[in-house]
Design a protein around this nucleic acid. Sequence first.
DNA 1: CTTGACACTGAACGATTGTTTAACTATACG
DNA 2: CGTATAGTTAAACAATCGTTCAGTGTCAAG
Lengths: 211, 211
Amino acid sequence: MDELTLRQQEILGYLQLHMRSYSTWPSFREIQAHFGFRSTNAVMGHLRALEKKGYISRVPGQARTFRITMDFNEENQPTDSVEVVDIPIYGTIAAGYPDGVETGGEIGRLQIDAETAGIRRARRAFALKVRGDSMIDAGIFDGDIVILEPRPPNNEDIVAALIDGETTLKRFIQKRGKAPFLKAENKSYPQLHPVAELVIQGIAKSVVRNL
Amino acid sequence: MDELTLRQQEILGYLQLHMRSYSTWPSFREIQAHFGFRSTNAVMGHLRALEKKGYISRVPGQARTFRITMDFNEENQPTDSVEVVDIPIYGTIAAGYPDGVETGGEIGRLQIDAETAGIRRARRAFALKVRGDSMIDAGIFDGDIVILEPRPPNNEDIVAALIDGETTLKRFIQKRGKAPFLKAENKSYPQLHPVAELVIQGIAKSVVRNL
DNA sequence: CTTGACACTGAACGATTGTTTAACTATACG
DNA sequence: CGTATAGTTAAACAATCGTTCAGTGTCAAG
């Protein structure tokens, strides 16, 4: 990660401060006013630099849609932020995944740092309370919380898949040249699941269990 | 706090999820698209209602400047603010436990909210990276992170105990009238451990594993 | 039957806001 | 000396976005 200039650190610090105070990102002209710029283009330049160096990400054309992708900890103390991610917990994930956001069925939330959870901050992780023991041979038990990331599965990934209108946890198997299938990791269960219409909602990254 | 209609709850839920997922509030037209409205005015009405009832606040004329004034669970009950705890991770816990804090051997830190970790904030929790497979029958594998609280063990608790100068994970068994002992939960291991000098460093509250 | 709330359509307006192009200064590098 | 980067000014543009006005339909309360 490239280093930031002094000015860029100031800008980034202001972004964070504004976000923490108002829970909203500032607009270009608010940043401009705060630093006394006479042109919004001064802001533009800095934000482009920050984005180029990977510190923030933005959605072009949309208002107030910065995101700070990196939590630069040590050194500059205007930061005390850790990479803690707030993740919704679903009991059951309803069909579809229309907008990357699912309104129904949220039963709680958890906070965990991205590294421990094995997820990337940018992606929209969600969590799932495991019901049933179809994955006990993979060390996932009834009542466990599984943290997932929505993305296409690779071979051997544990995935949350929509089967018969319900989300279940299975291992995704795809050998080359063959059709993929899902496998339950419990010796006493039917282990193979043919995949007709495969709706993968996410791949499991980590699991949390209360002992 | 006035009560919300079903539709208003849906809107509010979407606002929260969008904020948590994107760290940005949605625009009117994003809300419109998500709910399939054909007019942004439908959104206007709901947001006005939500603001009137005190659930959100906004800055007129500015883009994406909602704020939710309270956090809610599904029942519209304000959730007490979650407590994220910073926990040190030890590879091996050295002898003693002088101040509840052991600096040597710290291999990292993790952040997690107290409820998910099953711990109480007041106590000084610590985490331990599991080595070996002495507890696989309890669903704890090599490489797992176990979160512990220093306190006296009860029967059947999984504890971190100092054996032969090394910290290992065992289940603590104490039947009344008998001497306590430690039990490894792996069928292929010697399961019973006599306890000469029992040094319990903490009891396990939860486990986190990367899949 | 009327009133009022809730939920929504449709179109248009104007302000906010991100973006672009052009030009200027200063500093550092080779 | 030329070039590159950082930082800034200036004016204008176009898309996004919140807002308003006018109107439709439903349903429960009075």
